[in-house]
């Protein structure tokens, strides 16, 4: 084990948030780079999102004529929400940090949803049709995916008898049987689909398209500019990474986290986590390139699939401890 001084849990907590804040654009950049490569393009630099953010922060803010304070406040609230969630989930450590008990999976879900909601509200402030369309669609599909998230939460709750993300991860680490039990696999798979939806990926949405008609999440930010847009872009990258954290460190691969408070362990956990995040990102990039986008009205089929998996996870637990 790597040594080093014992870190104050508060510091580790801050480190978790920092990891997300700092590396979110990096992960986004890496994924779009890989996507471009898979499509035979050279693609943007991996660090391009940082340059974009820097540029946007230097630009002026333009407000649509009818926009009020909600338009300005929305992106800020969303950014704050995405800053809060990493406090609750195991980004770097196996053990719960002091503020980790502040909220359970549902709490984290609420905060993420609040972020999405404030972005949608901000978009609805404008008169622009595409932004409004995006926000209404995002809320609709968000509502449709909600039952699946709920059932995933139930599964976690049934497996661990709590609904704290740390314990689900611990359960999966505890034994291979636990990691292989169908309820766990099904919940993980369902959550994978949820992440696909929430990060605006194929087959739900074209991630990098410019066609407004197919847009869901992307459409909402069309009217923002300057620092506000920077906050939105950054926030959405952070949201993506937060969801990856839950997918990786709670459901599918909760290994390689720091087990103690020593500085060395915690620092090593950062690159390991990034590596896993990039791995997941690569999977998403491959999916992006292998499937086609569903027609808007067919997205309910996708939702039904996620719901099916989540419900089965709960049922399997009910019929006999699976």
């Amino acid at each position: 084990m790597l040594g080093g001084p014992q870190l104050d849990p508060i510091v580790i907590q801050a480190l978790q948030v920092l990891t997300i804040v700092v590396f979110a654009p990096f992960v986004s950049g890496a994924i779009s780079h890989l996507e471009a490569r898979l499509q035979g393009r050279r693609g943007p630099r991996i660090l391009q999102p940082y340059y974009d953010l820097a540029k946007l922060f230097r630009k002026e803010t333009l407000l649509p004529t009818d926009a009020g304070w909600v338009f300005v406040l929305g992106p800020v609230v969303a950014f704050v929400c995405y800053l809060t969630v990493p406090l609750l989930i195991p980004v770097l450590t196996t053990y719960p940090l002091p503020l980790g008990y502040m909220g359970d999976i549902l709490g984290g879900g609420f905060i993420l949803a609040l972020g999405g909601f404030s972005v949608a509200l901000a978009a609805a402030e404008t008169d622009a049709p595409y932004a409004q369309l995006g926000s209404s669609r995002a809320m609709t599909f968000g509502g449709l995916i909600e039952p699946s998230i709920l059932f995933i939460t139930f599964t976690v709750a049934l497996v661990t008898t709590t609904d704290l993300p740390y314990f689900e991860a611990a359960a999966a680490r505890a034994s291979t049987a636990d990691a292989l039990r169908p309820a766990h696999l099904l919940a993980a798979l369902a959550f994978f689909l949820v992440v696909l939806n929430d990060t605006g990926r194929i087959p739900v949405e074209t991630h990098s398209g410019t066609l407004e008609f197919g847009m869901i999440d992307e459409g909402r930010t069309l009217e923002h500019s300057g620092p506000l847009l920077a906050l939105l872009t950054w926030g959405s990258a952070m949201k993506q990474l937060v969801l990856y954290v839950i997918l990786i460190n709670v459901f599918s691969a909760p290994w390689g986290l720091a087990g103690s408070r020593e500085l060395g362990n915690v620092l090593v956990a950062v690159p390991i986590f990034l590596g896993k995040a990039l791995g997941v990102g690569a999977i998403f990039a491959v999916i992006d390139n292998s499937f086609s986008k569903l027609r808007l009205f067919k997205i309910t089929e996708f939702m039904a699939g996620a719901f099916l998996l989540a419900v089965l996870a709960v049922l399997v637990l009910f019929v006999g401890g699976g």
Binding site: L158, V159, T160, T161, T162, F167, A170, A171, S175, T176, A177, D178, L180, R181, P182, L185, L186, L312, V316, L317, G320, G321, G322
Partner: peptide, 19 residues
Amino acid sequence: MTHVGVPSTYAAVAEALAV
């Protein structure tokens, strides 16, 4: 931290196949 009847690895794999 109590578990709801954790299955053995054999049972877990078999059930996963049934799923």
